[in-house]
Every structure is written in structure tokens, then in C-alpha cells.
Design a protein around this nucleic acid. Structure first.
Lengths: 367, 367
DNA sequence: CTGAAAGCGCTAACAA
DNA sequence: TTGTTAGCGCTTTCAG
């Protein structure tokens, strides 16, 4: 039986409220009394029960973090950053994994709701309306998802996709493919929209393949299709898929980057370890984790509703609901190379030949 | 303001205790009443506050899981397995990361203690005595660590190291090196002990390098030393170090497996993605996560102390404190090859590249 | 089967 | 500065 506040009170000959104050409002108690209380507490191995404390203060000093898949190397740096940021502020992070299952997201938010002061929802796949509804149950901060009225920190994957496509274009590629990510992913839509726009602006064809599971096997399964569609350069939804694709192409005897160039997104640690080293769009995952925690905790601090506060109707003070956009950056490594040789012709001729209203399907004839 | 049990009671015209029973003891309430209550609850969006419930029942329906480093690919499969196993039993898993800092372990156990029904301590680096002390504060199940009297699930890394060394010996290597892991790691001691014994039994030299950080950079930093010590085959504390070592050797112009053979431990997903594919000792991480949760929950079920129970003195019923040993298995891939003198034997000895033994036969060490 | 009452461990007015 | 008194939201005797 762990010691309770009452045991400490008895042992130090004071009232329990004094013990309580000794811990949570030290300045309100006589230094001598305080040290005596602390000594007794120490001796008895007493530690305040945070759950009981939360019941009355309404503050658990915990935050929840829901991610789709801990095993996806994109998340751990984000998780670690969130944890360390939270710990600096004396908060703990409870990490939960949905296994890429949208239904699990809702369930987890409910389960966490009463045990945390807020939830960081990372790349949620739920509908906007469900997210809004959940946000009335517990403060939410979104990561990589935008919903009107809710705080969010996003990584500029649109910009990332654009620079990746531009890079490929600059290398002379004109037949591009995009490996789409999972259905319901906001990030995926951003990437697709930007990639399509950038390809069109560059006068290139872009075949969109997907949706697909955002995993290595999801990527390798697409090797055939990529080959068949005649693309000489591919942008993948994430590094895992890019790496999988390279594997798959390798199995087909297609070399990267000699035959096909591949670009990923995320810059996970792994992308430096595979051969060829992956060209990819670096995504500020750690910064996102830190920022999200900051936003949640700041919001949390301003949200305190005193005991027995009103019904908290729709007139609520939804103060600074910031939406932060973090920059991404193309990292060029070894998985991208020059496009087919004939391209030099065209490059010399017109440069970025903008505005092809009729995308001439695979007009380029290989030698 | 989320609805409380009182709101539901008022709305459905019953006493709060009836609402309570409708949720936690359905058979004790009239089906009609129950469905009316449930309907009201549904309408009000009421969900029982688990924290408040925990305060009185003493059961939070949460378990904690403390790992050294979420970013180490060894852990995610274990975490996911633990989560899914827990969820089947209506428990949640709170994952925390110590950042390889032993001091953080203690702090986290304390912080979690009151919010969970038990803690899974994964490869803890603390002293035995501290672990024992903490186990009096909250039920503990150890993973990859053995402390007398405490339930534990271990992976037989000793056996794994032995089979790795034997494999190397069989390939004709006589100058071996072991890349040691972090200080304080029980697993590391097991590996070293077995590797040393196996090498000696085979009449080979084994140089132990370490302790080292169990990371990729920890491994690559050792390339020089490995080279200098003249080893032709190396066993690393884990796959990450093995992969790092291969990188480092590559930078030195040393080829794997032609010049040096390398074996890892863990069989993380990454080990199939690097070139050469890593020969490694597969470790049943997922099974360990599942088993640990089972042990904790089973123990938890038997531990219920009724309200106002006695002081729970030293006469406690420490029932089935099992220590389970999970088997490991050598997976031969491409990072190991014949030793210096026996090139010609290869074809003769070769054969298909694997020797997956029987799946996890678990030995139970009695309490 | 349902209600009344007594708390779980703690904090937060309000007095003293 | 300290003690008293109410609870937080819920479960659990014990009556009825």
C-alpha cells in the first residue's frame, strides 16, 4: 500500500491540507513545517497521486499523442521531440498507435480524453466533422492536417513536392510518376496537388498511382506499374515507399538512378543507409513535435476554467488558434540522375515549356 | 463541459448509482432502465471518467511501457504487439522513452505509477536494487532483464550469440571481434558471456570492443578498431551497430563479407534493406511484448486487494512469478562469408542460406 | 432492482 | 501560517 497524503500528515503532525500545500504551494507554508513534511514524505516514500490531483484541478499534466504507426520511422523523431519538450514543462506524453486504422483514432481520443489535458493528432485520417466533434471533448492540436478553427502545425509538403518535381524536371525528366499515399491523408492530397501542378507547369506527364499503403511493401508492389507506365522519374509519398520501390525495381533489373530516378519525402534516418542513398524532401518532424506541444500547452494555460464554471457554451474564447506551417527542404543524394539523353534536344529548344493544355501523352520517343 | 454521471442520472430520472451500474454492472439493473440510461448517456455524449473510476477501484486499465529509445527500430514491433495485446483486454498502453538515460527510468516509473496498473520495463539499465524498490511501488514486468523474484520475459540472446559465433567458426573465421553494447545492459552481458565462451570452445580469438552506444554511429565509429585488431568476423550487440560498422568499413575500403563478415542481433526490418543484407540473430520482440502484457495483466487480476485491505505486508502472495525465456534464431543472409583460408570449402558447405529452427519454444524458469 | 450514503486521494475556498 | 469543510466523478456497501 503506497503512502497517502494522510499517512504523511499523521507522521508529521499536521493537517493533510498542509501536506498538500507543502507540495503544490510551497510558498504558503512555513519553511520549517515544509521541510519536516517533506522529510516524512520522503521517508514514507510518498508521492502525490496525480490522478486524484487531476480530478480536482482539472489538469492531468499529461498529453496524448496519436500516430498512425510507431513503426514508421517518420514518427519516432517527432515523438521524441514532443516528449522532451513536454518534459521540460513537467508534462508527460502518452503515445498511442492506431495501426493506420481510422476507427482506432476516434476510440483512442475518447479513451485518452479524461487522462490528458490535450491530444496531438498526427496525420489523422478521420473526417473533418469528426475531428471538430472530438475537439469539443478535449483540446486538440493537429499535425499535418488542416481543419478550420483548430490549431495545427503542418509541414509544407506541397512545397516539398514542388521542389522535388522541379529537381526532376531540371534533370531532364519528362515522364513522371507519383506514388500516392493512403486514402484520407491530407498530406497526400497536398503532395498530389502540388506535384500535378508542378509537372504541368514544366510540361511533363505525371501518372498518379494510388492510393497505396505508405509502407516499404506498398512501394515495392508498385515497381511493375511504374515500369509499365514508362516513367523515368518517380516521387513517392514517403521515404519508405521510395525505398520499397527501389527494391522492387531492382528485382526487375531496373537500376536507380541510371534507368529511373526516385525521390522520397521525409528524410528518415534510413534514407541515408540504403544504396543508393535516397534523394528526398526533408521534413521537420522534430520541430513539428515540439511546436505542437508548445501550442497545446500554451492553449492549455489560457483555457483554465475555474471550478463550477459556466456551461462553456458556444461563446467560448477560441483565442489564438494558430496554424503553423513548417518549411521542408530537398536533399539531393544518389537516387536521382539525369533523364533520357534525347531530352537535351528539348531542353535546348524551349526550356520550361509552360502551359501545355493538351498533355501529349508520352510524346517522347526513346532512341 | 463534458457530461458527468450526474447529468445522465438527471436526464434519465434515476439515481447516479443506477447509471454507474448500467455501465459497470449491467446485470444488476433492469434491462429497460438500463437501455433508457444508455440512451441518455449516448445523447449527452457521456463517457465514464476512467480517472475517477480508477481512484476508487484501484484499476486504471492502463499499463506503462518504458523503453530506452523509440527511435531504435528494435522497439516499435514490441510496442505494437504490446498495444494490441493490451487492447484486446481493454487496456491502454502508455509508452515512454528514456532516451537511454538510466535516471529517466526511475523518474518515469514514479510518474506512471499511479496512472497505470503496472509497468513493463524494457531493457532497464538501473541497478537490481532500484528495480526491486520500484517494484514495491507498482507491479513490474521486466523485459530482457532478470531480477530475482520479479516476473520477466527474456530473449535468449546468449543462445543467439552462441549460434552466431558458431556460424562464423563454421565459416572458418578464427579472429573474431564483439562490438559491445551499452554499459548496464543485461543483454550485453549475456551476449558477451556466451560469445566469449563459444569462441573459446572453438579455439578462436575474440576481441571485445566496448561498451558503446547501441546505435548506427556507435557501430561506424568502431570500423577503425575492428580493422586494427585484425578480426575477420564481427558480432555486434545489435543490428544498428552492425549496419553502422558495415558503413564504416565501407568508408575504409573494406568489403563485407569479402574481407570481413558481420553479424547483427535483433533482425530489425532495416537489416533486409541494407546492402549486403545482414546476417543476424532474430529476436522475438513482438512475442516478448505480448507475453509481458499477459504476465502483467494476469498478475494484475490476481492481485486485487479489496477496499480497505490490510497493510499488504511482506507476507504478500507473490504467486506465479514466472520468468519466461523466448528463443532466438540465426538468420543467415549476405553479410557473412567464408574466412580467410577456406574459400574453396564454400561450395561444398554452402547450401540454401538459412536454418530457421523451430519457432519459439519457450523455456520457463521456475520462480 | 434501486436509492442513500460513504468514501478513493487530493485541492481549494474559507476561517481561525 | 494552519485547520476546516466541501467536494472532483465515480463505485460500492447497505438498506429498502
Amino acid at each position: 500500500m503506497p503512502a497517502t497524503i494522510r499517512d504523511v500528515a499523521r507522521a508529521s503532525g499536521v493537517h493533510i491540507s498542509t501536506v498538500s500545500r507543502a507540495f503544490s504551494a510551497p510558498h504558503l507554508v512555513n519553511p520549517e513545517t515544509r521541510s519536516r513534511v517533506l522529510a516524512c514524505a520522503e521517508r514514507l516514500g510518498y508521492r502525490p497521486n496525480r490522478a486524484a490531483r487531476a480530478l480536482i484541478t482539472g489538469r492531468t499534466h499529461n498529453v496524448g499523442l496519436i500516430v498512425a504507426d510507431i513503426a514508421n520511422p517518420f514518427f519516432p523523431p517527432l515523438i521524441k521531440a514532443a516528449e522532451s519538450q513536454a518534459r521540460h514543462r513537467d508534462y508527460h506524453v502518452f503515445v498511442a498507435d492506431t495501426n493506420e486504422d481510422p476507427a482506432a483514432e476516434e476510440e483512442l481520443v475518447h479513451a485518452l480524453a479524461k487522462q490528458v489535458d490535450g491530444v496531438l493528432l498526427c496525420s489523422p485520417r478521420m473526417s473533418n466533422s469528426l475531428i471538430e466533434q472530438l475537439s469539443r471533448e478535449v483540446p486538440l492540436v493537429l499535425i499535418n492536417r488542416q481543419v478550420a478553427g483548430l490549431p495545427a502545425v503542418m509541414m509544407d509538403n506541397g512545397q516539398g513536392a514542388r521542389s522535388a518535381i522541379d529537381h526532376l524536371l531540371a534533370l531532364g525528366h519528362r515522364d513522371l510518376a507519383l506514388l500516392g499515399g493512403p486514402r484520407g491523408s491530407w498530406t497526400n492530397r497536398e503532395i498530389r496537388r502540388s506535384a500535378v501542378a508542378a509537372a504541368r507547369a514544366g510540361g511533363a506527364d505525371l501518372t498518379v498511382l494510388g492510393p497505396n499503403p505508405p509502407t516499404e511493401s506498398g512501394g515495392s508492389a508498385l515497381a511493375e506499374q511504374v515500369h509499365r507506365c514508362g516513367a523515368t522519374a518517380v516521387l513517392a509519398y514517403n521515404d519508405l515507399m521510395a525505398i520499397g520501390l527501389i527494391e522492387g525495381l531492382d528485382a526487375l533489373g531496373i537500376r536507380v538512378p541510371q534507368d529511373v530516378s526516385v525521390v522520397g519525402i521525409d528524410d528518415i534516418a534510413l534514407s541515408r543507409l540504403t544504396r543508393p542513398k535516397l534523394t528526398t524532401v526533408a521534413t521537420p518532424a522534430a520541430a513539428a513535435g515540439r511546436t505542437a506541444v508548445d501550442m497545446l500547452l500554451q492553449r492549455d494555460a489560457t483555457t483554465r476554467a475555474g471550478r463550477g464554471a459556466g456551461r462553456g457554451g458556444p461563446g467560448d474564447d477560441r483565442r489564438t488558434t494558430a496554424q503553423v506551417m513548417l518549411q521542408t527542404e530537398l536533399v539531393i543524394r544518389d537516387s536521382t540522375g539525369p533523364g533520357p539523353a534525347v531530352e537535351s534536344h528539348r531542353a535546348a529548344a524551349g526550356g520550361p515549356d509552360r502551359q501545355r493544355t493538351t498533355p501529349t501523352a508520352n510524346a517522347v520517343v526513346a532512341p
